[in-house]
């Protein structure tokens, strides 16, 4: 089972879990803050809306199309 950190907290998830799912498993499910300051969460689940973009190991990535891996660092808050 991969263990990642989500906003600094450790989280153990089932193999094959997307980072989008991890956001709710280990937090409130939100992924980013919009330009006017609203918290947002994944919407389309399929790589279109870009609402799920988070920072993974220092890179901007889509949470819904990224699988959780051991040692991954996910940040949802700037």
């Amino acid at each position: 089972m991969p263990e990642l950190t989500l906003d600094g907290r450790p989280l153990l998830v089932a193999p094959g879990t997307t980072v989008a799912a991890a956001l709710l498993l280990g937090g409130d499910g939100t992924s980013r803050t919009s330009v006017s300051g609203q918290r947002r969460a994944p919407v389309c689940g399929m790589g279109i809306c870009q609402e799920c973009r988070v920072t993974i190991d220092g890179q901007r990535r889509l949470a819904c199309q990224t699988l959780c891996r051991d040692g991954m660092r996910v940040e949802s808050r700037p």
């Binding site: 998830v13 089932a14 094959g16 879990t17 997307t18 989008a20 799912a21 991890a22 709710l24 498993l25 409130d28 499910g29 939100t30 918290r39 947002r40 969460a41 994944p42 919407v43 389309c44 689940g45 399929m46 809306c49 819904c64």
Partner: peptide, 18 residues
């Protein structure tokens, strides 16, 4: 947050969203 697409919800659940 809490509002998704319809197929979107299905896709997110399949990916492990509880």
């Amino acid at each position: 947050p809490g509002v998704t697409g319809a197929g979107g919800l299905q896709a997110l659940i399949k990916g492990g969203m509880p």
